[in-house]
Amino acid sequence: MGEPIRLTSPRDGFEFDAYHAPTMDARRGGLVVCHAIWGVTPHLRALADQFAEDGYETIVPSLFDRQLELDGARGFAERDTDPALYARQNGYAERAAWGAEVLDGVQAAIDALAPPVFALGFCFGGTVAWLAASRCTGLSAVASYYGGQIIDYLDDAPKVPTLLHLGKTDELIPPATVAAIREAYPEMPVHEYDAGHAFVAPNGFHADSARLSRLRTLQLFARNGGGNNRGGEP
């Protein structure tokens, strides 16, 4: 089981919350998980624990902490989704400054982990993971799940091996968007599943898609340095 920790922004020293799940035995690497608009939810904390069992020391940074602090609402989410908080959480995502706020938090999490370090993200976090692949340092590979805004950042070419997981019936990412991504990056793996949006999350869960995408993500990490290491050594 993991526990809350505090990370420090490399840019201005701001302290923000994160969930940290250490490995119990052989360490394969570090992993940064980028959350959807709902924040560091119970589901993501459980997912972090699962990746830690697979050998990946995992950190889930709370990427909206600067805005949450202004609202006096810091702390991890108590529910995986909360319709009453949708407007607030979606507003955080819309106002997020990719460099100063979001990617700054991702970089702090990367820096807190011994290499090799990987990243993945879901929905809002899927776009964050895409941008981290091009703008952050210290990553070895990235997996992005249904990042709806990737289409707006196609010029941010990943600098590390990257793959995308998308749902064939995801109304937020239509076929034309998928085609544009494939055209821009014809050699990048873009996996489509017989599922809609959020097929890993409880609110859109699709068992076969979640299982296969997880397998492909772990294979990506293994191919790019995620071996059986102890003591945090690369």
Rank of each mutant, 00 (worst) to 15 (best):
P22C: 05
G126D: 08
T58V: 13
R230K: 06
A201D: 10
A46S: 13
P42R: 02
T162M: 00
P115E: 13
K159M: 08
Y56L: 10
R211D: 04
T169Y: 14
M188Y: 01
L220T: 10
R95N: 13
L163E: 11
P202H: 04
V190D: 00
W38K: 06
A109Y: 14
T137Y: 03
S144L: 05
T169S: 14
L113G: 02
R95Q: 12
H165R: 07
V40Y: 05
P174G: 15
R11E: 11
A97W: 15
P189A: 03
G125V: 00
A46L: 04
D152Y: 14
T58R: 10
L154Q: 08
D82L: 06
L68G: 00
A129W: 03
Y193F: 12
A157E: 13
A114V: 03
Y185T: 09
Y145F: 13
S140R: 12
Q67D: 13
I181M: 15
N228Y: 14
E69C: 01
E69Y: 01
L68C: 04
D111P: 02
D104L: 10
V117C: 01
W130D: 04
A132N: 02
I5C: 14
S209V: 00
C123V: 05
L139G: 06
G196T: 07
D49W: 12
G125Y: 00
G147K: 00
Q219C: 02
R211Q: 06
G99R: 15
G121N: 02
L47M: 09
Y86D: 15
F76L: 04
I150T: 05
Y92K: 02
R6W: 12
K168H: 10
Q50I: 10
A26T: 15
D49E: 07
R28M: 12
A207P: 06
G196A: 07
A157D: 09
G148M: 03
Y19E: 08
Q149H: 14
E15P: 02
L70C: 04
D65F: 03
N228W: 14
H197E: 05
L172C: 08
R74C: 05
F205K: 07
L218K: 02
T81P: 10
G99E: 15
G55V: 11
E187G: 07
G125Q: 02
G2K: 10
V160L: 01
F118V: 02
P61H: 10
Q219M: 09
P189F: 02
C123M: 01
V32Q: 01
K168F: 06
V117I: 07
G227P: 05
V102A: 13
I150Y: 08
K168Q: 13
R79G: 06
V60W: 09
E183Y: 03
R74V: 09
G2T: 14
L7W: 09
R223A: 13
P189V: 01
R88H: 08
Y153K: 14
Q89P: 00
G99L: 15
R28Y: 11
R79P: 02
Q50T: 14
A184E: 13
R88D: 08
G167F: 06
A48T: 09
V33S: 11
P186R: 06
A112C: 09
V33C: 11
E94T: 05
G30F: 12
D170F: 01
S62Q: 07
F51E: 00
